[in-house]
């Protein structure tokens, strides 16, 4: 129960940060990327603030043996670069550039009650589901080939 309440409160802090910073506003996000037009540099301050706090906080937290509610830190361990990483990031950017919504901005935007955010998130979840099932099928096939 404490785990659930804790995750809920941390989600509230995350969503508040997204909403106040302007990341939940597609027009503001698109203007950040529009250097040749109506440029709004605000999002550099969002990224800067988030990065500084996270880098300093992580340095202290990861020195501990384990998190409070788990036996270990679930950290990605891969360090190699591969095609899906770079191609996926490039494809993500195309969608972000068309709509101004990224996943972390769009989820809190749902709480503002605008239909546009719901339409985007519904489609995004569809995209995630299709891609996850595709990846799953590819992994199963690779495993079968290897066996």
């Amino acid at each position: 129960m404490a785990r659930i309440v804790s995750a809920l409160l941390i989600g509230l802090i995350f969503g508040s940060g997204i909403a106040l910073s302007g990341m939940a506003n597609p027009a503001k996000v698109l203007n950040f990327f529009d250097f040749a037009g109506t440029w709004d540099p605000s999002l550099a301050f969002v990224m800067g603030g988030a990065l500084i706090v996270t880098a300093i906080g992580y340095a202290f937290v990861l020195r501990r043996g384990a998190p409070i509610f788990d036996r270990l830190f679930h950290l990605p361990t891969r360090r190699d670069l591969d095609v899906p990483l770079v191609a996926g990031a490039a494809v993500f950017g195309i969608g972000w550039g068309i709509t101004g919504f990224c996943p972390g901005g769009a989820i809190p935007a749902l709480g503002l009650g605008h239909g546009d955010a719901w339409l985007f998130v519904g489609s995004m979840i569809g995209g995630i589901a299709v891609a996850r099932l595709t990846r799953h099928a590819m992994a199963v096939r690779t495993a079968a080939d290897t066996a």
Partner: peptide, 9 residues
């Protein structure tokens, strides 16, 4: 755009 973002991420 939503489908594209979902597949890309």
């Amino acid at each position: 755009g939503g489908l594209t973002v979902g597949v890309g991420v």
